[in-house]
Simulated assay, not measured.
Amino acid sequence: MEITLWGWGLTILVIVALLGLDLTRALRPHHVGFREAALWSAFYIGVALVFGLVFARLVGWELGVEYFAGYLVEKSLSVDNLFVFVVIIATFAVPDEYRHKVLIFGIILALLLRAIFIAVGATLISLFAFMFLVFGLLLIWTAVQLYRHRNQDPDIERNFLVRTTRRVLPVTDEYVGGRLVTRVQGRRMVTPLLIVLIAIGGTDLLFALDSIPAVFGVTQEPYIVFTANAFALLGLRALFFLVTGLLDRLVYLSTGLAVILGFIGVKLILHWAHGLDERIPEVTTPVSLVVIAVILAVTTAASLIKSRRDPSARAHAGAVLGTPTVSPDHDQRDAG
């Protein structure tokens, strides 16, 4: 699929405009109620769906199905990314008035990192066919780790970047007017807000490492990979305020994501093997779309049934790297 420079430019302009719209609201901190969060979440999801329909009409439904499959994968991973944002905000007790800035920073950084990894991933795949095998094995390893630690949260305090920052830089005890750096008795110090942003950045990096191979498992078109990622990430700030109180009820979220990542990992390996021997079957994109949609539907339904039958059951983000632990603040999260 050939996308002209005008096509890329117009797409990026639309995404930047939508991001700018979200940024202007984030710079005016206020309490976000359920109705406002629901309307903005519906708006961004609607924009993603309209884009997919227009895209499919212009280039054909085969590529359109690839976009919707990629969007589903990235949206589910973005919700888990959002889950970890909740853990970070709760761990560092981020005041309500600063949560907007933290979230918009996390979204912008995630977009930038994924754009970089998309370019790198597309280049590697075009040069080396065995990268499908590498990506597939990476996703299967991630799926196994996520399933093993599905009932745990990542230990943010033990994050390498967070520990290094605390060891190297003096940190104030209090948030100081939303500043990242301040002076206390003539001594320059960083505030906890900087630590939060570093933790968010580390989380975005890990999710970018997982999400790019995952979406390349359903499409090898860089344009589709980029737009599926971008539209999945847009609107996460509103979604945060909409579903923070509901995330705890998605008790099988990590299990469902582990199954999806494992499935896509196997699909990538079969694709690589098919290139060596055409007798080895491949998993088609329409089949992938159906499988991913069914897994997400079953995961959501099973989670809601479990939480209804056992009100004490709580969901966890899952942990892949580092020493996982159940966050002591997990059950005390609030949406602000």
Rank of each mutant, 00 (worst) to 15 (best):
F132K: 15
Y223W: 14
G256P: 07
A230M: 13
R28F: 02
G52W: 01
F160V: 07
W8F: 11
S126C: 02
Y147I: 12
K267W: 06
K306Y: 04
G70S: 08
P311N: 03
V144T: 02
R28K: 06
V320R: 04
T227L: 08
S254L: 08
A42E: 07
M131D: 11
R57D: 15
K75G: 01
G70K: 08
R314S: 15
R314H: 14
Q152V: 04
H330R: 15
L268S: 11
L63T: 13
R179I: 01
A56Y: 03
P192W: 01
E282G: 05
T191W: 01
T4G: 15
F216C: 08
T165R: 00
G336A: 13
T219C: 06
A56D: 09
L268P: 03
Y147N: 15
W61Q: 06
L137M: 06
L18W: 10
F51V: 06
F240A: 07
P95Q: 03
D173V: 00
A38F: 15
A302D: 08
F130M: 05
G177P: 10
L161E: 10
I15R: 01
L63C: 00
L21N: 14
Y252H: 15
G217T: 12
L82Q: 13
L13I: 08
R57C: 00
G7P: 02
F135M: 13
L197F: 08
A214G: 06
I295R: 10
A232E: 04
G217F: 02
L124E: 09
E36N: 00
T182K: 03
V251N: 05
I292L: 08
L72Q: 06
E282W: 00
W40I: 02
T227Y: 04
E97C: 00
S76V: 12
P222T: 01
G60F: 09
W8P: 10
R163F: 05
N81S: 11
W8M: 11
I3E: 04
R99D: 01
G275A: 13
W61F: 11
M1F: 09
E74F: 01
H100F: 03
L18P: 09
R179T: 04
D277W: 12
L49R: 00
I116K: 11
L77K: 10
V176G: 07
A238D: 09
L27D: 00
F68A: 03
L321W: 15
R279H: 11
F231T: 09
V243R: 05
R166Y: 13
I260A: 10
I88E: 02
L146M: 14
R150M: 11
A42W: 06
F132P: 04
D80I: 06
V59P: 04
F130K: 01
G121L: 06
I305F: 12
I118Y: 05
G60E: 08
I116C: 14
R28S: 07
R308D: 03
S41I: 09
V16F: 12
P192Q: 04
N151Y: 14
R333D: 07
P170Y: 01
L27W: 08
F263C: 09
L103H: 06
V65A: 15
W141G: 10
W40R: 10
G235S: 05
V196P: 02
A42P: 11
V16L: 15
F85Y: 14
L239F: 14
P95L: 02
V87L: 12
Q152P: 00
V291A: 11
S288R: 10
